[in-house]
Design a protein around this nucleic acid. Structure first.
Lengths: 331, 331
DNA sequence: TTGTAAGCGTTATCAA
DNA sequence: TTGATAACGCTTACAA
């Protein structure tokens, strides 16, 4: 961090003033083509890069965006998060922004608070939405630009989301069209808004088909293997012809339980998932699933956030960023 | 980012000079107890936090550390990475450092280069080591402080690692002590140094027990399910009483293959893993495994990196950061 | 078109 | 024990 060239050095060596050099680099302000090119070729040759910190101080910016990662993400969520992050990274990197990671717990957002109070980020992306989301509430009060990825009941937030409702409804509808009528649903943590949305999508498709959702075919709050076993037993007692699981994890647990109980897929029970993964694609049988491009989600979120940082007020976006992949499990 | 209080405001409101206020906050330099407390209580009351950017410029620091995350991490690696990150975060957060994430590909370290050239981080943690590691090479040349987590043949690097050799030897030794003598080993990518280390640990334990390792009981390069099936068949033909897999992924594949072949664990074959996971802990039967606290690894790496940033030259560390967890699969 | 100089919010070196 | 004042490296009116 020591003897690196500064804009002053360059100015001196080129016999110019620092403001001229600055202008040449930033492209702002008018100056002659020749001096601009002289400066540009010089900094290029000497691989000069302005100090982000100094720029930050002058511009009142950090050129960082905060990305919040819940510490309690578990293995399947991590994949989503990682791909989101990729999308964010691809989007921000060209514009000179970096990603500051803030790990927060459900009831401990102190990391986020520090990030904001210490002015280490120009804006924040929340990668998960919760009911009663402490992080979102705090950010709202802070006045700092932020966007959330995922569904939210709060209309004030700038949201970037898949149209999960349509997506889940579409997959459910396709299964209905295949002739399955007693389609069961199994979901996890119902403090996650996404859980609720998926359920609504499922119910929407049923109603469109003239079927009133049967609560005894629906089980939420399934998070551990034991619960999956119990939930599956309950659901099976209702004689379903098809089961949709809300995510990869639950689908995996159900597959294990089915093996234990010698229930064959798809012969005895059709199985589908509202969230695709390599695991579901490669398992045997391969599982029908809703495929979502999480990178696009991240990229869209970053794009909107940067707009906000530039002073605009973008609209929320609902991406039709999914496709239904039909596989052996629902043949 | 606008009208926040500055150190000047505070100085004015307290009738002091900004240098006095600065001293009160930083704790550097002598000043009377009374003024110190006056300042402290004032900033506390008004929740003043110094601007990290301005401090950065004055101190020639960013108070950020870069953490490199390969984009090609797959699902099992992500868990390791996430827990590492937790450890790093816990360690750095109290000292006012934040984590800047840099996503890099195996052959594209441009993100890292940008991070360094733009002076956005005071140091870097590499969470994975490779042969011919472009990231490590670049960082070495850059002169910026960095540490790597994992094994490396390069003695110049500051490494933070588990004592995998002892760990693997210990687990193998315990299985030998249980009376199993034909212990097989299955491993993955043998261009990873870790693969080699684990094998050495296994062999060490055998030799200690007076058994010469039998190459026909050892299979490396197992990465896909198909390979696992073939490798398992080969190994089974050698009549082993126990099989150790090098990581969670291979163990999972072997479990699947065993199910297909109606090989019961532990009745027909004992099974153990050199890397633990929630999956192995909760599967049935639960699998004996070596448990490593990845958070501690991250924390240790962060600690060493911060030492380097402070100008010290720490030693590499080899943590005895593991425990053998005996479960049903080796009963 | 280019230069001068005043910030941006800190820390640190002097004096007082 | 405190207070001016000059850095830190950049941006940007305002002048020339």
């Amino acid at each position: 961090m020591k003897n690196r060239k500064t804009i002053d050095d360059i100015a001196a060596e080129l016999g110019l003033s620092k403001s001229t050099v600055s202008r040449a680099i930033s492209g702002k302000g008018r100056l002659s083509l020749s001096t601009r090119e002289r400066v540009l070729s010089y900094i290029n040759k000497h691989n000069y890069k302005p100090s982000a910190v100094a720029q930050g101080l002058a511009m009142q910016k950090t050129y960082n965006i905060g990305v919040v990662c819940p510490v309690d993400y578990e293995i399947f969520d991590l994949q989503y998060f990682h791909r989101c992050l990729q999308g964010i990274s691809e989007q921000t990197t060209d514009l000179g922004y970096d990603i500051i990671l803030s790990m927060i717990g459900r009831n401990d957002i102190s990391g986020l608070v520090r990030l904001i109070e210490n002015h280490k980020a120009d804006g924040v992306i929340l990668t998960r939405t919760l009911f009663d989301d402490a992080a979102a509430d705090y950010l709202k009060k802070s006045g700092r630009p932020f966007v959330v990825i995922g569904p939210s009941p709060d209309p004030d937030l700038i949201r970037i989301d898949n149209d999960h409702l349509s997506a889940c409804s579409e997959l459910t509808g396709i299964l209905l069209a295949k002739g399955y009528t007693r389609i069961a649903l199994m979901g996890g943590d119902d403090t996650h808004i996404i859980t609720d949305t998926r359920r609504k999508g499922y119910e929407l498709a049923l109603r469109k088909a003239g079927i009133e959702p049967d609560p005894s075919l629906i089980r939420m709050g399934v998070e551990e293997t034991g619960q999956a076993g119990a939930a599956l037993a309950e659901i099976l007692s209702q004689d379903p012809d098809c089961l949709i699981c809300m995510d990869e994890k639950i689908t995996g647990m159900v597959m294990g339980e089915c093996r234990n109980r010698h229930i064959r897929i798809p012969q005895d029970l059709r199985l589908a998932s509202f969230y695709n993964s390599a695991f579901l694609a490669n398992s045997s049988p391969a599982i029908t699933a809703l495929d979502i491009d999480d990178r696009k989600l991240g990229a869209a979120a970053a794009e909107k956030l940067l707009e906000m940082i530039e002073g605009n007020r973008p609209e929320s976006v609902l991406l039709k960023n999914y496709q239904v992949i039909l596989r052996e499990s629902t043949m």
